[in-house]
Design a binder for these strands. Structure first.
Lengths: 218, 218
DNA sequence: GTCTATACAATGATAGAC
DNA sequence: GTCTATCATTGTATAGAC
């Protein structure tokens, strides 16, 4: 405003506008990718929703592909962090698994559109969409589950007869079903109480031999 | 060839060519939809792979959308038929569920590209791709599983303490995990032996109270 | 950093001959 | 039923002013 020398304005405005533009673009991208899909989403519509212009998008992300990978990268980062917090918890294996499932449930609930875009990309075509290693997230989740199961076995809470890998597979399946029910339009989401009940169902079959459990017979 | 009257050739060739063209188009469509996705797939490439021309596609299917829905419809029909055969089987609930899972596993194995297209459509965007009721397949599968579970409960093979719906949810989860591992590039498919072991894992927690089972203690 | 204006390829679909 | 030729539209991405 009051600066005399042209070009020397060390204003904070540029950088501030920069971040606003960037985040506006990211939010708009998630919205359009979710509704139209990556391939059918046009940069025209994205910048329109974001309230910016095309060159702004290419300045910040370079391409439509990098716009998607940035969205997925940030989501993956956040989910991984939450997963690590969950696995660091104390308690019985059952309590920890329940907490992990509840955390994921809550996280998905907060970011339904992003999770939908992630699923669409995961199940989408190989060509056309940029490569993104989703198995990273999947492997991390399975590793977290398996670790809790193994520690539960070591603590004598879970039968060692069943391999931790098999148990983890069942848990992963339940998590998957609940996630799908949460994000897909055609289903009404399943409540947390049902989730806990189902986990209990699995556990009753994974517990150590009934005779050793003590509390069991009623 | 030797016909005198022009246009009066009641040859069988046209109809025969018709069906060949149609099925060639369907196979090419699955191939391209699988690799590029519905939105990014171009009718140009599809007809090129099929060895026909664009107007032939529009003559048989009317639009790109109907080409996809036809593919999915036929797949859904075949899968549903196999599901009904599986649920009609005799034996214990465990045997029937194992058989159902094995049948699905085999069916998916035979039609990996179609199953991938189905998943991509299911998890894909609402707009852009033609509407297709996949919950139909999902609901049928869940109904089949639940029915077997309920009959298992009635026969005294499965504990009535757990709701059939909850048990079905766990089975659906396992089926889902195995299906994903089968069709997705990033995973190596899980073998049938593992599948049986995992089902056994679930069952050991769903069986009636151990004391009543007789065979149980070793 | 953000704009206007534009380059240029590829798309789904059709008209009309045969 | 299947073809050749073509249309109008939309796509991503960029050059250059400010």
């Amino acid at each position: 405003m009051g600066t005399i020398e042209p070009g020397a304005t060390a204003d904070v405005a540029p950088a501030e506008t920069d971040e606003r533009t960037r985040s506006r673009l990211l939010r708009a991208a998630v919205c359009i990718f979710d509704r139209k899909g990556y391939a059918a989403a046009s940069v025209r519509e994205i910048v329109e929703i974001a309230g910016v212009t095309k060159p702004a998008l290419y300045y910040h992300f370079g391409s439509k592909e990098r716009l998607l990978t940035t969205v997925l990268d940030e989501a993956c980062r956040e989910f991984t962090a939450a997963m690590e917090r969950a696995v660091a918890r104390k308690g019985t294996a059952r309590q920890r698994l329940e907490a992990l499932c509840e955390d994921l449930h809550g996280l998905f609930q907060e970011h339904v559109p992003v999770v939908r875009v992630a699923h669409a990309t995961f199940f989408g075509p190989v060509e056309g969409a940029p490569p993104f290693d989703f198995t990273l997230f999947d492997r991390r989740l399975e590793a977290a589950v398996r670790r809790i199961v193994e520690e539960g076995q070591a603590a004598g809470e879970i039968a060692t007869a069943a391999s931790a890998a098999d148990v983890s597979l069942v848990i992963m399946g339940v998590i998957g079903v609940f996630a799908v029910r949460q994000i897909h339009y055609s289903f009404e989401p399943i409540g947390l109480d049902t989730m806990r009940r189902v986990i209990g169902l699995i556990f009753d079959g994974v517990l150590r031999e009934q005779g050793q459990q003590g509390e069991r017979r009623q």
